[in-house]
Amino acid sequence: MINILSLTHHLGGAVILQDVNLTIQEGSILGLVGVNGAGKSTLLRLMAGVYLPDEGRVDYDGHTPAEEKTREGIFFLPDDPYFTHNATMCSMLQMYLSLYPSTDKAVYRRLTDGFGLDEKKPLRTFSKGMRRQAYIALALAIRPRYLLLDEAFDGLDPLSRKTVKGELIRLVEETGTTVIISSHSLRELEDFCDSYAIINGKTVSSSGDISEKTARYCRFMLAFAEAVPAGLFDGLPLVSVERSDRFVRAVFDGEAEEIERQLSAFSPAVLERLPVDFEEAFISEIEGGKKL
């Protein structure tokens, strides 16, 4: 289990993360989301031991990532991994083989073949997506206990995304790996993550089970014969709203049946309840400034 306790980090006098608290269960796949510059990458670097926290700590079963033993179980794949001019997949594999004895060559081979990558070609000749595939193949082959992925889907084609999602689920099932993945593609995360953490306002503003949290929200589409009546949302737990002359789409944080009953009182021509996905819930939280 990973416990992040009162974590605070500054950069050049500016606070990047403040009093971050988060618990990540063993064997879960957590989607780390937030707007650009929210501090997702900083949090992942602090979790990987690349940055040293100013206050608080990251705790892996009682050990910090500064400890070598802890880092033996962690693999961090940054959003823009570095490689030397002549680095090939082969040479990268050699490096990781020497440092991570748990590396499974069969997995590496299966993924490399699956992606159709030439492991002897220099990485600099690969496209951005191919490089991403190469690093993901290496990351999955290492079979770490904790896998930290920063913008892992960035640059991947839909087919590769599907493969990677499948492989991540397989890794978790086979080895009990805990995966923390940051991404802006929330619909993608919703497909395979079981939990989430939103970084907003320099801290983790909410976290938990994705399905439970999206179930808390409800969205209604309403159409009126005349103009939208005044006071339509009075007393309702409104999160966000889009409106035109006679149409309204609104997201609420509350009991759907009760909200539907109150909206019906305005006799709309159409009243339809729509599901809320994780991306809408995220946007509602960020824009509405409300907790999920």
């Binding site: 690349v50 880092r71 961090f76 940054p78 991994p81 440092l99």
Partner: peptide, 18 residues
């Protein structure tokens, strides 16, 4: 002296002193 490189190097299972 390269921040990208440090992401890889400093997350390896080797202490900074080593």
């Amino acid at each position: 002296k390269n921040r990208r490189n440090l992401d890889t190097l400093l997350s390896l299972p080797v202490s900074r002193t080593k």
